[in-house]
Amino acid sequence: EKADQKKPIEISADAGTLDQLKGVTVWQGNVIVIQGTLRATADQLTVTRDAQGRQTLQGIGRPATFRQKLEARPEYVEGQGSRVDYTSASNQVVLTGNARVKRGADVVTGGVITYNTETEVYQVSGGSVQGPNKGRVTVILQPKDEGQK
């Protein structure tokens, strides 16, 4: 949810390296990131910060995951992929490699999934034909109950 962005970010890992000159921090081993309702995990996380303070996070894992509460709703969005890229300037999360996003009861899988944490809209592509999804996309949308329409 939007309030997460104002919250402090807590990161824990086996080890970390901060390069002040390049503005790059690399966290390695059992990486857990918590910011408000957002929780992400990865084997390695690289945080890059540009001169304007905009951040990009790249998580690599088996898989790398993230989970965040939806705005004004008790539901969560959960995503995973071999690699997760997050850009704070565009609020965009890109999941690559066995990508999977579950929002409420709906599930989407594919080669690459792009998810906007602001608009909560996601876009999925099958990725390469040689990939595990054979270039296919799977979307499972649960019927809404009468009250939810």
């Binding site: 970010i9 807590e10 990161i11 824990s12 890992a13 086996d14 080890a15 970390g16 390296t17 901060l18 390069d19 002040q20 000159l21 966290w27």
Partner: peptide, 10 residues
């Protein structure tokens, strides 16, 4: 260059 050797938390 700052390296946190183990049990890193920030």
């Amino acid at each position: 260059l700052l390296r946190l050797l183990s049990h890193a938390r920030v």
